[in-house]
Write a protein that binds this DNA or RNA. Structure first.
Lengths: 354, 354
DNA sequence: TTTAAAAAAGTGTTCGAGCACGCAATGTAA
DNA sequence: TTACATTGCGTGCTCGAACACTTTTTTAAA
């Protein structure tokens, strides 16, 4: 009844040879006579040998230096969570010799990204996790890393055709559709729906466009085109100014504004405006559980947040590298993280996943 | 810069003693002179020693026989997911010597539960995971297992004061509040809201009452008492009959019925009724991603499902036992799983978590 | 002071896989 | 025939923790 664990030694005994020879067959090293090799391979199959990962990693003691190229959390608190995810994964994998070096760049500065990306190359890590938020600037490096044989995992921002080991993040299109579904559920009367890209350089972030597409197509697909008018707007403003003017104007133009969908983590900016102007009936959906967003969620001004699970992105990113490098597992090219819907009542559970 | 891995040997050298003595201090076995013990403890703290789990489990090679007392998935497909979770955890932990024996009972038969519970005792497992859906019948066994020194983890149904190692599942009260929040968001005009307990023996399942409380109190707390009238009803019916009559009658009594909250996984029964009668405007929220529910979710008749994450419950249940038995970790008395909000657009991600 | 018992501390083997080392058998050239 | 390279394969140490076993030291009794 019990499954006996098959060891190299067992195989060796059965094949009337030594564990050294079995080892050579298993790892294709050294030379082994053909007949012996085949005998051993047959026995391995027959006994369904699986190497004992525990013993394996105890012995090998190999160090795996992973690099993470990721924005500075002090400049945009969204990035705190991926950092935490990285650290959580590092803790779990330290046993297996994993060590992560962070290369932190300024999310508002392409040059700092380039500088750090160059540093990564010089370090020759065994694997790389990268948030490629600068599309154009990142492109040349992918080739460089590929040439150096460094496997890289993308997260947060999906880039096609750069042949990463894996992409980890959300399906932006679906994400937009989901936001649309939620807002539509809460919309009680015909009106205008705003897609707001707040303080973001649209030209360099394709995923926001994809979100908008998903959002618009939901309304089209449900044949709600004539009930709800979807408009979109880039709202950029310097820190000290705020977005009041722009939204005032927008409301003048569309007095029947019923809902706002903020495509990034800046929903709290819109929420502040809604609160100030006591606009209780305008529904609001945004992204990410950063502090200010949580506050407005608890106040009921932001109705729902969609969680991009940034912690999970960092965590799984490292784990995928480990699965590839250490455990030699097959890695799916894309790992979509769930689109979690968060509201006041279930917020807690998503804040600190054990 | 590199974190050196601290070994027992390192501690021994620093304390000018042998690894045997350090071992005795670590495991409180044998006798150690007080001054030496303290010296060693200080060094352990100072160097922040963490035992190498890999080496640990390689050596110990101990078998852990866990038992799972859980309903038959063939009689209620809700239970398929916990079974899968169990198996997933077993696979991951096989390396550590974990083996699970399932004791499957009939979820409609108390006597079958009792019979299987007795069997568990006879097997003397090292740990037990149990879905105690029969409150009264389960009670005496907890004492028995405690006397035998078998740690048990409860899941799915929370029972107070039986001193389990841990409860894993949802916060029922919150769950009810969440359902209320969602329905309220979608309710466009004043009306009646129904809490439906479908085919469930309320007297033996306190958690459904708790859900209802959470639901009702949401409406009270938000001072929506006069806008929405919350009523609740037990809807029991034999397989061949259906619930049509009962709902027909209910609608006659409350023509302004605007939403239904089904407190268990039977939302599809209500959905079938709504579909048959083309009642598009009645919002519907229920639980669990079982097949029929998914179908009505995709059709848009069920608006949202709350995921009780039954797979996760099985998975984490086993993992908590392993954490306790194998890794000697501290276990929280309650592990609440997230209240996931599921709709057509994000359903996929919750179906088969890798 | 001797001696036995109890207490404290040290030694060495084991788990399974990885891998360095080295031995033996055969082949090849001077 | 000697010298030495090549091929094929076996041996034995290592990783860190567990634990059985042995040795040394302390304490108490004779």
């Amino acid at each position: 009844m019990k499954k006996k664990i098959v060891r190299i030694k067992d195989i060796a005994e059965r094949a009337q040879t030594s564990k050294g020879t079995v080892d050579r067959v298993l790892h294709n090293r050294g030379r082994v006579a053909d007949d012996v090799r085949e005998r051993i391979l047959a026995i391995i199959k027959e006994l369904n040998y699986e190497p004992n990962l525990i013993a394996q990693s105890l012995k090998s003691q190999r160090a795996f230096n992973l690099a993470a190229l990721i924005p500075d959390p002090n400049l945009d608190s969204y990035w705190e969570a991926p950092h935490n995810g990285l650290e959580k994964a590092e803790k779990e994998l330290r046993q297996y010799g994993v060590h992560i070096t962070k290369f932190i760049f300024n999310s508002h500065s392409e040059t700092s990204f380039i500088a750090k990306a160059k540093e990564v190359g010089r370090e020759h890590p065994d694997g790389l996790l990268i948030a490629p938020i600068f599309y154009k600037e990142a492109l040349p490096f992918f080739k460089e890393w590929a040439d150096m044989g460094i496997p890289y995992v993308l997260f947060n921002t999906q880039i096609e055709h750069v042949n990463p080991l894996c992409y980890i993040g959300q399906d932006s299109y679906r994400s937009g559709s989901l936001a649309a579904k939620i807002l539509r559920f809460g919309l009680h009367s015909p009106g205008t729906v705003l897609v707001a890209h707040v303080n973001e350089d649209i030209s360099n972030s394709a995923h926001l466009i994809t979100k908008e597409e998903g959002f618009r197509n939901y309304f089209k697909g449900e044949q709600l085109d004539d009930t709800f008018k979807v408009i979109s707007k880039e709202i950029n403003f310097p820190e000290e100014e705020g977005l009041d003017k722009q939204l005032d104007e927008l409301r003048k133009q569309y007095p029947d504004l019923g809902a706002v969908y903020v495509t990034n983590s800046k929903a709290f900016e819109v929420a502040a405006y809604l609160e100030k102007n006591a606009l209780k009936d305008i529904k609001l959906v945004g992204y990410d559980l950063i502090g200010p967003n949580q506050q407005y969620l608890n106040k009921g001004i932001i109705d729902f947040l969609i969680n991009q699970n940034p912690l999970g992105q960092g965590y799984w990113g490292i784990h995928q590298l480990a699965n590839h490098l250490i455990f030699k597992k097959e890695i799916p090219a894309i790992k979509f993280l769930p689109l979690d819907i968060i509201t006041k009542e279930n917020l807690d559970y998503y804040l600190d996943p054990q």
